[in-house]
């Protein structure tokens, strides 16, 4: 909230502004630490999202499994990771989705960083 820093392309700092926006979404994702909560979500996604008071933007992003939209709606990657993990996806799948690559391309990009 204080002195704004130069933005870092492709990177959103999860500060107070994002926290205020994302609270219900992050709270829902935090609940996925419990297996029972995951089952409840999977049994009726809409009802579970409503229970936590997600905004429409957040509900849509959840429905579409859209990582960039989830981040834009205030999602924090640490809590979103519970959602991603529950779907059986890993950080490479999500990395590929966010960068518009195939998973193979994304893995190659990581490997290239070692050269």
């Amino acid at each position: 909230m204080t002195a704004p820093h130069e933005p870092i392309p492709g990177t959103t700092i999860f500060d107070g502004r994002m926290a205020m926006k994302g609270y219900p979404l992050n709270k829902m994702c935090y609940s996925f630490n419990e297996a029972a909560a995951r089952q409840e979500f999977l049994a009726d996604e809409d009802a579970y999202c409503a229970k936590f008071g997600l905004t429409d933007e957040q509900k849509t992003a959840i429905k579409e499994r859209n990582a960039l939209a989830l981040l834009a709606a205030g999602g924090n990657i640490y809590y979103l990771a519970k959602f991603i993990g529950m779907l059986g996806l890993n950080v490479q799948d999500i990395g590929a989705q966010q960068t518009g690559m195939t998973v193979e391309e994304f893995k190659a990009k990581l490997k290239a960083a070692g050269n």
């Binding site: 909230m1 204080t2 500060d15 107070g16 502004r17 926290a19 205020m20």
Partner: peptide, 14 residues
């Protein structure tokens, strides 16, 4: 006043 709260928290942590 969450906006002022965050301002104070940022200032204090720094």
């Amino acid at each position: 006043d969450p906006e002022l709260s965050w301002h104070i928290i940022e200032s204090l942590v720094n």
